[in-house]
Write a protein that binds this DNA or RNA. Structure first.
Lengths: 127, 127
DNA sequence: CTGGACGTTCAAGGACTGTTGAAGTCAAGA
DNA sequence: TCTTGACTTCAACAGTCCTTGAACGTCCAG
């Protein structure tokens, strides 16, 4: 049987995470600085991440593509416990999709308004 | 009958457009610089916009909210004729919504991948 | 214990999206 | 005519999101 042992957890270097999440090492440091991911330090002051770091970064890059800022994403992550379960992640993902869909819905609504308020979008500049 | 007269068209100042599109005058100038909107000049070298300018800006701000850059938006506008009809605008709006939805779909897909590739998003850092 | 790969911090720079301020131009009314 | 307000350009700055480089410390395999 594979015993559910306590993982060493914080074992990944900046480079590991960079590689796993497809970003530059500089970006990994930047994201830590911004509070998007968290690291512990070795006695020699080097960063060590757990596997969630890469996951967060991948997630973050996706979120950025639909218009969220790093800070907004960091806020979303605050809802995650230290060792998130699959369900925790699922919830976060759902909320991101929901947010993205809300934005699209708003977009659609506003575009409609833009077209119907005044025909042919002659936006009625009042001078 | 209301005769379909040729509009003077380029009669709105930076301030008019700024007010109509809810952005700062500096932003209007910036958008012109970026090719998002076009102006003619008076003999005194002042910008004069037509009613499409405000419309484009409103549209652009919406597009930005779902992750498009000014340049991407400018590219979208290149598909518009000088005097776009309601249908021209409708097409552009549709393509924007389509683009936004595509991004959300991609987001959803990638998030799914993120969760299923490896359970609980333990992103399988390979070291 | 040493060499080389990898890590650290800090400062600077760069693309993007604007804003602000200085200095000058133009049009129109008192 | 002179003043006032709105316009012009240009340069500098700001916030976000990083990248690059210098100078220096750490880790580990041989």
């Amino acid at each position: 049987m594979t015993t559910t042992e306590a993982l060493p957890s914080f074992v990944f270097t900046v480079k590991d995470v960079a590689h796993a999440s497809q970003v530059a090492p500089s970006a990994v440091r930047f994201y830590e600085e911004q509070g998007l991911i968290h690291a512990r330090r070795t006695t020699g002051n080097q960063r060590r991440f757990d596997e969630n770091a890469a996951c967060r970064i991948r997630f973050a890059r996706l979120a950025q593509r639909v218009g969220l800022t790093v800070r907004e994403i960091a806020t979303i992550f605050e809802a995650l416990p230290e060792e998130p379960s699959a369900q925790d992640w699922a919830r976060v993902c759902d909320s991101l999709v929901a947010e993205a869909e809300a934005r699209v819905a708003e977009l659609r609504h506003d575009l409609d308004a833009l077209q119907t308020v005044t025909t042919r979008c002659t936006a009625g500049i009042v001078r």
